[in-house]
Design a protein around this nucleic acid. Structure first.
Length: 267
DNA sequence: ACTCTTCGCGCGCTTACATCA
DNA sequence: TCTGATGTAAGCGCGCGAAGA
């Protein structure tokens, strides 16, 4: 089947799968900051650009040809007994159908929860790939096109955003987990190396008599500098081995050596 | 200019139903 | 046929921003 839908241009060109952060400015054109923006090579959920139903016609500019979906199109099962994308839904609290279609079926029993047909879902999915949010007019047009209530379209988009966010969170967690594992491995390796160096140091007391040369690494710029006593400077300069026996010291804070301010590299 | 109220919307959390293995 | 897991439509409450009084 084909669907002809005319809607305005997107109000959310950034789209993609960047999830809206809570209470962010929704009209902002800047995509919200994501973990994958901060971390290298974080897998990001695909955002394929597929043919989309958001066509070029401006909203309300012309008659929108609407074809009522019928679920025989793809054989998709809508569990509603009348097998249509009905404009009714089940109110949990009142135990009846609400808003426009509150009747019960012939048996007097309430109808089951509506499930969208595959066609409807696919259409909504395509729309979502173009817009993760809908403006009221787009919602109405989509609802009309799919023979759903606007509320259903709205709920579908809300749930779809939630699912996307959940998946992205899972991806991010997986990535962080791998990062953690890698860092643990690196930590183990460095600890082992340190032990070896210490063992070597105790085996060669001669070098203990040499003035200590400390390698100090700036955690900010990651440059390494040697800080030695004045008398030892010459000796250490000519004795690379003594330098190698000293473990680079990671400062606890940015340029923790003191005098230089945090914005100014000590090195 | 500021405050308050109302409205619409999105989100998180949750429930309940449909489907499947 | 029954059952537990999973997916998802939908309800509810809350917070936020915009608009108007």
């Amino acid at each position: 089947m084909e669907l002809a839908l005319s809607l305005g241009h997107t109000n959310n060109p950034s789209m993609g799968f960047s999830m809206a952060l809570p209470h962010e400015t929704r009209a902002s054109s800047d995509p919200p900051l994501q973990l994958h923006h901060l971390l290298p090579s974080t897998p990001v959920l695909p955002s394929p650009r597929l043919p989309i139903p958001w066509l070029s016609h401006a909203l309300g500019m012309e008659e929108i040809p609407v074809r009522v979906l019928d679920d025989t199109d793809d054989g998709a099962a809508v569990s509603s007994p009348n097998n249509s994308a009905v404009s009714s839904y089940f109110c949990r609290n009142s135990r009846k159908f609400c808003e426009g279609d509150s009747e019960e079926d012939e048996n007097g029993s309430t109808r089951k929860k509506l499930r969208l047909s595959k066609t409807q879902s696919a259409f909504l999915e395509d729309s979502f790939k173009e817009h993760t949010t809908l403006n009221p007019k787009q919602k109405l047009v989509l609802a009309k096109e799919l023979n759903l209530r606007p509320r259903q379209v709205e709920v579908w988009f809300q749930n779809r955003r939630a699912r996307t966010k959940l998946k992205q969170t899972e991806v991010d967690c997986e990535y962080l987990k791998r990062c953690c594992e890698n860092l643990s491995e690196e930590n183990k390796r460095l600890q082992k190396e340190l032990q070896e160096l210490r063992a070597l140091k105790t085996c060669e007391p001669f070098f203990m008599q040499l003035p200590a040369t400390t390698l100090t690494m700036c955690p900010s710029c990651e440059r390494v500098a040697t800080t030695t006593s004045t008398s030892a400077a010459a000796a250490s300069a000519t004795n690379n081995r003594s330098v190698s026996l000293n473990k680079p010291r990671i400062l606890s804070g940015p340029h923790a050596a003191g005098p230089p301010g945090p914005s100014e590299c000590f090195f």
